[in-house]
Design a protein around this nucleic acid. Structure first.
Lengths: 346, 346
DNA sequence: CTGTTAGCGCGTTCAT
DNA sequence: ATGAACGCGCTAACAG
């Protein structure tokens, strides 16, 4: 910087002001300085800037997939976060911390990041308590039971399941399963699981339907549990699959000889572009993961810009996309083991 | 730091040395200093450390998924990278830069990162030229045509396709399609595409088989192209699907009434844990994405530690996992449109 | 084995 | 509209 000051015949402070724009600089000198900057290929040194200004212009994202490899959705969230941060000129750090509260504040305490975005938020989350204690800036993709003063974006799983259930009811189903991931993935009181069950039970009652809640793993042979279940409960003619649980479900149904969608209906709740990867194509409720990532970052950046502004809290609702997959559902009744969706229970 | 020096009755430099371990400190004073650190909850300020030591202890990963949302694999690579960096005490920055060479050097030039990991490497890559020009430390997940002096990990797509083709030949297939993603995703001369085609054509010749190379998109209705193809070429009884192309393929086959694996064989080349999500379960060649991410980071970190060490260059080979999906392949010949795998062409 | 001290590159206050 | 000078928190000589 001293080089470029000399080269353009000004003081270093003037160079700084040209860079930051925090003081009026005459058009002429500004241009002269700018030329020197371009010619020397000068780039301001971030750590020095951060040291002096006490702001790293970076935020840290707690990234779940670092631990359990199957969170294919988190990718989409990440792309949204990245879009927002880079537009705002912020760098994005991904942190590998677990749910341990000490890990989550490390980037903040060491001055690596100005704020943190949390994912996989639990209804009662130690990390949130820790961040609140020192009033660190953060936002959440997801939400707790008590969210006073916290900015977050969340998806309305309660509503999504209700929506799915209504659709299945219209198709004639009267006995439906809800599949959630095993708690090991996101902890015991994981918001989406809790709230999807809530919506499930309420709507079952409203529509006088029967239903079962199933927790299942996704790797390897976990599908056998699912298979056993549907073997035991043949009346169950449809399922709502949250996230990657569609995989064990579809494998189990295939092994049971139940054809989707002719013999069995499935609605998957998945991050939006991933629904294109599911085969056979299923009706889905798409989680706008990219947008949620973007919003999650934006509300944090806003809080960094105006610390005293009121928190942004939003819950996004999903909408149903009906896909007709494969041949139209004319019945091939002789080959069926299960019930036909159009008939329901007798 | 001056506080903790006073509190433990030593000089600030001693505190620094306790922290870094770069000088021998007597067990007694070390413990005294450490106690003060713990009591005051002191954490060294990273930007200051970086300013003085000219090292950010951070590396930057160029993350493809920021642009096109469907690279579900990149997640797995990321988790591997994250594992290695965090173990080494490095922070991980994800960069949203495109293939533009200016973007890739930004974190290096501003002192935000000490090195860069590249993904989606092209056979001739501008970014690589740029990094080489200023001798910036970097590693690649993937490789160029000319890799002199560069550390990289890559997957042997040539070998993988050859392996798949041999297996299909043993099953009796004589006409096979290779599906790659459209070039728009990764650029015109994308290594995996080029090398998979290479392995395909060589092995076709070796085994006297016929084959076709197909580029396809994955979103929405792209599968129709694939459907048209297999309608036009009914002799083709098997396919090798690279990455997410399995989705349009399976959808097309289903719409054509060709049952997998009874009427048609598919081998997918996918990042390893993702193969569990594919329904129906397919025989796969798994790309060890997590391990590749880990290695990609490790070879960069090693280069940062010993700049003069020879570069590490590794090409990982895949192995075939045969999955029997659904009912055993007894033939239901009346319902078939296509050829049976066990019979091949007549 | 430990203390003293001079910057690292930038932002910013105070002067002019 | 511009310059001079100090210090952010830490590291690494150099001295003892």
């Amino acid at each position: 910087m001293v080089d470029i000051a000399r080269r353009s015949g000004v003081a270093v402070s003037t160079v700084s002001y040209v860079l930051s724009g925090k003081r009026v600089v005459s058009a002429e000198t500004r241009e002269r300085v700018q030329r020197a900057i371009d010619e020397l290929g000068f780039r301001p040194h971030e750590p020095a800037r951060a040291l002096k200004s006490r702001s790293s212009r970076a935020i840290s994202l707690f990234f779940p997939a670092a631990r359990h490899g199957l969170e294919i959705d988190s990718n989409i969230f990440l792309s949204g976060v990245l879009e927002a941060t880079s537009e705002a000129g912020y760098a994005l750090l991904v942190s590998t911390a677990t749910h341990d509260p000490a890990g989550i504040v490390a980037p903040l305490e060491t001055g690596r990041a100005d704020g943190v975005i949390l994912m996989e938020v639990r209804l009662a989350d130690d990390r949130v308590d820790r961040l609140r204690k020192d009033d660190f800036p953060f936002s959440m993709i997801g939400r707790c039971a008590n969210n006073d003063g916290i900015s977050y974006v969340d998806f309305d799983f309660d509503d999504a399941v209700a929506l799915a259930l209504h659709h299945l009811h219209e198709l004639g189903h009267r006995h439906v399963a809800l599949l959630n991931r095993v708690p090991s993935v996101a902890g015991a009181d994981y918001g989406p699981t809790a709230r999807s069950v809530q919506g499930f039970e309420r709507t079952l009652k409203d529509l006088s339907m029967e239903g079962e809640h199933l927790l299942c793993g996704t790797s390897g042979a976990d599908y056998i549990e699912v298979l056993r279940f549907f073997e035991r409960v043949p009346d169950c003619t449809a399922a709502i699959a949250v996230s990657v649980t569609y995989a064990p479900l579809l494998t189990a149904l295939r092994d049971l000889g139940r054809h989707v969608p002719n013999d069995f209906s499935v609605i998957a709740i998945v991050a939006s572009p991933i629904s294109d990867l599911v085969t056979p194509q299923l009706s889905t409720i798409d989680v706008p993961a990219h947008e949620m990532g973007r919003l999650g970052a934006e509300i944090l950046l806003q809080r960094l810009a105006e610390p005293d502004a009121p928190p942004s809290q939003m819950v996004l609702r999903g909408s149903l996309t009906v896909r007709s997959s494969g041949p139209p559902p004319r019945r091939l009744s002789s080959t069926n083991l299960g019930m036909a969706p159009a008939e329901g229970r007798t």
